[in-house]
């Protein structure tokens, strides 16, 4: 329902209503050229914005450094809100469906999800397969359709379910964040192409499905260990350009979403009238 909290679901069949709504909103954002465009938002991460926060930047000063998870949570929220803005541009049947980012569970689907591959929709262009990365102010200018090279980088494997289970046992935020970021890095390397470089990764729509999985794992860790398990010195740090602080990102409910494995609406009720006691006496 428009305006209510949404459930982020696992990437599914491209014909599923929630996938259709997401893809249609993304396509609408890709067609725009203004600040609400997909191209502009993708450009926050690498070129030309360079706002993203990766790696621990200040050796031996961990409190100032581990913004990887909060920054990317804010980034996903920003895109999700922008896509929900696009609901008004969509046909009523699609626009009425909640628009939420789907997550790619690379421990279960050890390949680019089918919905994100070319030809998946039967249309001329699948908006989830590739977008035009356009940064005319870069030197040299960036202007190409995003590509991937999954599995080509030597030694690189997608994280496994066992590795994730072990990670979720790690109760220390710093250690958890570092280790989860390394899983994240390995997926970027594994997908390759534009996803393999910070500069252009976010122009590939699968970036957000990947990061949604990362964010979901932080959420699952928070469910287990509590949302306050983070160094207090991080809480008031700003997350540019989103207007949020780290504290603002700790609760996913506050940002308007939760993670679920499935959410199915029930058909409308069919009122029926039970025989009255008086009637049954006849």
């Amino acid at each position: 329902m428009a305006g209510s909290m949404v459930y982020r679901l696992q990437v599914g069949d491209v014909r599923a209503p929630y996938m259709q709504a997401f893809a249609a909103a993304l396509a609408a954002a890709e067609r725009r050229l203004d600040r609400a465009s997909y191209n502009t938002i993708a450009g926050f991460h690498g070129a030309p914005g360079w706002y993203c926060w990766h790696h621990q930047r200040n050796p031996r000063t961990p409190e100032q450094a581990r913004l990887f998870l909060p920054w990317h949570r804010a980034y996903l929220w920003w895109l999700e809100q922008a896509l929900q803005d696009r609901a008004r541009d969509l046909p009523p049947a699609i626009g009425a469906t909640d628009i939420a980012l789907p997550w790619w569970d690379w421990t279960a689907v050890a390949n680019i999800p089918a919905a994100y591959r070319a030809g998946a929709t039967g249309r001329a262009r699948n908006p989830l397969a590739s977008t035009r990365a356009y940064v005319p102010t870069a030197r040299p200018p960036v202007d190409h359709w995003t590509t991937r090279a999954p599995g080509r980088a030597p030694f690189t494997r997608l994280p496994t379910r066992a590795q994730v289970a072990d990670l979720l046992e790690d109760s220390d935020f710093a250690s958890f964040s570092d280790r989860l970021e390394d899983f994240h890095d390995s997926v970027h390397v594994w997908v390759g192409g534009d996803m393999g470089t910070v500069s252009t990764a976010a122009f590939d729509p699968v970036f957000f499905a990947h990061h949604c999985m990362i964010d979901r794992l932080w959420y699952l860790w928070q469910v287990r260990w509590g949302i306050t398990r983070i160094p207090p010195s991080l809480l008031n740090l700003p997350l540019s350009p989103f207007g949020l602080t780290v504290r603002d990102t700790l609760s996913v409910q506050r940002l308007g979403y939760e993670y679920a494995t499935r959410s199915v609406g029930l058909p409308p009720s069919r009122p029926s009238r039970a025989p009255s006691r008086r009637g049954s006496r006849r």
């Binding site: 870069a138 030197r139 690189t156 390397v189 470089t197 990764a201």
Partner: peptide, 17 residues
């Protein structure tokens, strides 16, 4: 064990960027 680095690869800015 192993680790991966998500790299920046190339400069896309002016000199000193």
């Amino acid at each position: 064990g192993s680790f991966s680095i998500f790299g920046h690869a190339e400069c896309l800015g002016d000199e000193g960027h």
